[in-house]
Design a protein around this nucleic acid. Structure first.
Lengths: 210, 210
DNA sequence: TTTTACAAGTTGCACTTGCGTCTTTTTTTA
DNA sequence: TAAAAAAAGACGCAAGTGCAACTTGTAAAA
């Protein structure tokens, strides 16, 4: 993950924090991050540690929305994932930087070169996240599990001449990612194998079509 | 829709176009936009007219991904919607501005105030789009039509004290938006009515719960 | 007005999927 | 190394959904 502070010196970073009147908070393992101000328009950066965005269903179910590691950017105006029904939980000792979004858009800031570098970095980082989200939309729009899997392969494969790739996560997590029941996904993977469209060895998948 | 050129004078906009060595293209009704360079990292802005992003399924189906009106921003690094399998079609006489994404991130540009204003505008616009996309993800993640509808109401309702709102589009389009079969959605709306959870009058929906 | 087109609404059926439950395998922790 | 936990894998069943085909309503075009 690219750092939002790329191309900035230590001195510039300090100036930036001052300019944006940022706040820094520290959280312990399993502590909730920003429970009080989560409805403000803010942008946050993980300076250290590891946290998770958990979405609370109206029926009480909890869904893992996002893993947040060092340099990850999140916030109401960035992803919209932390709304009323979200909890952000530190999973280890975690340091978070909080920036007011409206302050971030203040035209006066644009006079400072270090701010502009920072803005450019944020722009690039959020665009990368946005692209990932749109990939997922293309998958979730499909009505059938088979189509979702094939779309996922299409996206992961992207012209890899070996037609083989390693799943970036477990099959259980893949089921969550493509939004289907785990055991139903297993069944469909088996059908794809039976139809000689793919080969599966652990997390390694080989495409036999195309 | 907010303009990417907000807070910029005519003169500044001209300077900006020069700095970014932008290209302008003009398309006729039903002409494909940028068929040749669609795999480049670019950011585009609709200067005039109206276009659509169409996604081509591997089975030949065509899906409307996005409507693009004046001032709309799109491109490979912005939404990722225009990839290999996408066509962008002008639906009337349409003028498009094309900017090279890497050029947009060139640190030298940051010395120009008008560029920084433009960057800030783009940042804000794409964040707004990103938030919308994340709303849709929250809906599409649900496994059942009922849950998708309730999540949609949750998002549209957002504390409206009247618990009543007007659908921003037709029921057919709503079915596409929440990614389910139209007639299955109708059935589920009826069930929600039968269970006295909602009242429906045309496109007006009243929530009876909460 | 009549015609045409499209959205809204209904129904039956087949098939897909979610879900629970179970066994086996692999990985992690003690 | 053993024990515990998590992931992988399988399966039956009921519920939910997609799909096709149809009717009704409504709004635009001839």
């Amino acid at each position: 993950m690219r750092s939002p502070f790329e191309d900035l010196t230590k001195l510039q970073i300090n100036k930036l924090f001052d300019l944006l009147s940022v706040h820094q908070y520290k959280y312990h393992r399993n502590e909730e991050i920003l429970p009080t101000i989560k409805n403000e328009n803010i942008v946050c950066i993980i300076l250290e540690g590891y946290a998770q965005i958990i979405y609370m269903e109206y029926n009480g179910d909890e869904i893992l929305m996002e893993n947040l590691y060092k340099n990850d950017v999140f916030g109401t105006n960035i992803s919209g994932t932390n709304n009323d029904n979200c909890e952000i939980i530190a999973r280890e000792e975690t340091k978070v930087l909080v920036i007011d979004y409206d302050n971030l858009l203040n035209p006066k800031n644009l006079n400072h070169n270090y701010f502009n570098i920072f803005l450019k970095n944020l722009f690039d980082i959020t665009n990368t996240k946005f692209k990932e989200t749109n990939k997922r939309i293309r998958i979730l729009e499909k009505k059938q599990i088979r189509d979702r899997l094939l779309e996922f392969f299409e996206i992961e494969y992207v012209g890899n001449p070996l037609k083989t790739f390693q799943l970036p996560f477990s099959l259980k997590e893949l089921a969550d990612y493509i939004g289907v029941n785990r055991s139903a996904m297993f069944r469909e993977l088996r059908h794809l194998k039976d139809d000689k469209l793919i080969e599966v060895k652990g997390r390694k998948i080989k495409l036999l079509y195309k």
